[in-house]
């Protein structure tokens, strides 16, 4: 047999839900019927109401006057930083696109239009002049041992691409003493990747040299 106290316990959790309007209608009717005849549960419901009233009556903290401006300032700061990141990414993207078109452009700001082409034309012209010079005018110097030649850095740079302080083309033997970085600086290219632009010119040089020998 269920005692009155046990019956109250079976309703207890639902008293809160009843107060919060969270019971299904059928269960709500059951609980309300019990409460109507139970002084203990009526008192408990009244206490719950007092608790809620106390909670709602707690003093609301005063929001600091400058809190909104601080939040808006941080939002503005984040927006600026985000815009800068986006701009940097877009700049990097263009640089990467330029890099795909020209090996010299990777990872840098876009270069001036036509600059790579102008450099290539100048180098090709100089290479052709050197070919003529080597093949027709200048006699070859002493040959280096084969193993020394094999140890030269690859790719090799056509001598015409490098000029000394007087603007004269350096001797090919001098080029081997220069590091790739020196070569890059000497020919006013931005990185070693630019060396790739002129590597193919070696083919022209070799073709020209063989032609000169044929003619000699």
């Amino acid at each position: 047999m269920t005692t009155a106290r046990e019956a109250c316990l079976s309703f207890d959790e639902d008293l809160s839900a009843l107060r919060d309007g969270e019971l299904e209608s059928e269960r709500a009717a059951e609980v309300e019927a019990h409460v109507e005849g139970c002084e203990h549960c009526r008192a408990r419901l009244a206490t719950f109401a007092a608790v809620d009233a106390n909670l709602r009556g707690l003093a609301a903290p005063r929001v600091c006057a400058d809190l909104e401006s601080r939040v808006l300032a941080r939002v503005a700061g984040e927006r600026t930083a985000s815009a800068q990141r986006t701009a940097a990414e877009e700049g990097g993207g263009e640089g990467r696109r330029a890099g795909r078109e020209s090996p010299a452009g990777r990872g840098r700001a876009p270069r001036r239009p036509g600059r790579s082409f102008a450099v290539a034309v100048a180098l090709a012209t100089a290479a052709a002049a050197l070919v003529v010079y080597l093949g027709l005018v200048r006699s070859p110097g002493p040959l280096e041992p084969e193993d020394t030649v094999a140890q030269r850095p690859v790719p090799q740079v056509p001598s015409s691409a490098v000029r000394d302080s007087e603007g004269l083309a350096a001797h090919p033997a001098d080029l081997d003493a220069l590091s790739d970085e020196d070569l890059s600086v000497a020919i006013d290219l931005e990185t070693l990747e630019d060396l790739e632009v002129i590597t193919n010119l070696e083919i022209l040089e070799e073709l020209g040299a063989s032609g000169g020998k044929d003619r000699g």
């Binding site: 207890d12 809160s16 719950f48 007092a50 608790v51």
Partner: peptide, 8 residues
Amino acid sequence: HRARSALA
């Protein structure tokens, strides 16, 4: 319910 009971 537990919270409300405790406060009550």
